[in-house]
Amino acid sequence: MKKYLSFFRLRFLMNLQYRTAAWAGIATQFVWGGLEIAVFGAFYKTQPEQFPMTFQATVNYIWLQQAFLALFAAWILENEIFESIRDGNIAYEMCRPLHIYPMLFARGLAVRVSRAVLRCFPVLLFAVVLPGPYGVSAPESAEALCLFFITMILGALVTVAFGTLIYVSAFFTISAQGLRLMVTCVMDFFNGAIIPLPFFPDKVRAVMELLPFAAMQNVPLRVYSGDLAGREALRAATLQIFWLFVLAGAGQLLMKRAEQKVRIQGG
């Protein structure tokens, strides 16, 4: 376990070194959050009766999404790993006393957590001081806050499990870049990164909520404001756990086959 933890230490150190990058990222998130809220605000002003969640809940959703972007953003995948899979250098990793799947998982989680920890506070601080409906409000209840943290951890784990599955699939594809971009798009669309799931038509949404993508950021971001509460929230959390096991299991299985492939064909 300890050896996988060292990836976290390494990542934190690396990210701390790149302070300019961190500030630039934070600035980007302010702007994106602001513009996103402006768009939803414009729709709200035009037809408030059509809004599927309260405006405040939408604003909270957007700011929390920006603050914890690194935990959930689909595009956070390491090119380095794709490269090493493509040129076969990953084979060297197999010489170390590590299992590849947990290693990829740990690396994926380390990248996300280290970034998020570094970047969430400035964004949150900014969002809290913003006035009126444009800033983050307090959570719906103490329970909601509790559930928010739990589902956030679960959501991050599901995201990482899915990301690891993409890495593993790269063993079997010709264009890892193409694959990466396409999967990222699908993920963005279905996990509520483009627009929050409640804004989709009800029938579409009913299907989307069953998919693994809905088990990522969708749950915690809505739980916080009570948009998802009670039995519905519990059902969503259960689905998160379900998908976590399914994705991780599928990843492990596929990894075994990939390892065989590398052993036989040399990458």
Partner: peptide, 11 residues
């Protein structure tokens, strides 16, 4: 597209 499934105009 999906936003306009719900709303008929923005501004």
């Amino acid at each position: 597209f999906f936003m306009f499934q719900r709303f008929s105009a923005v501004g």
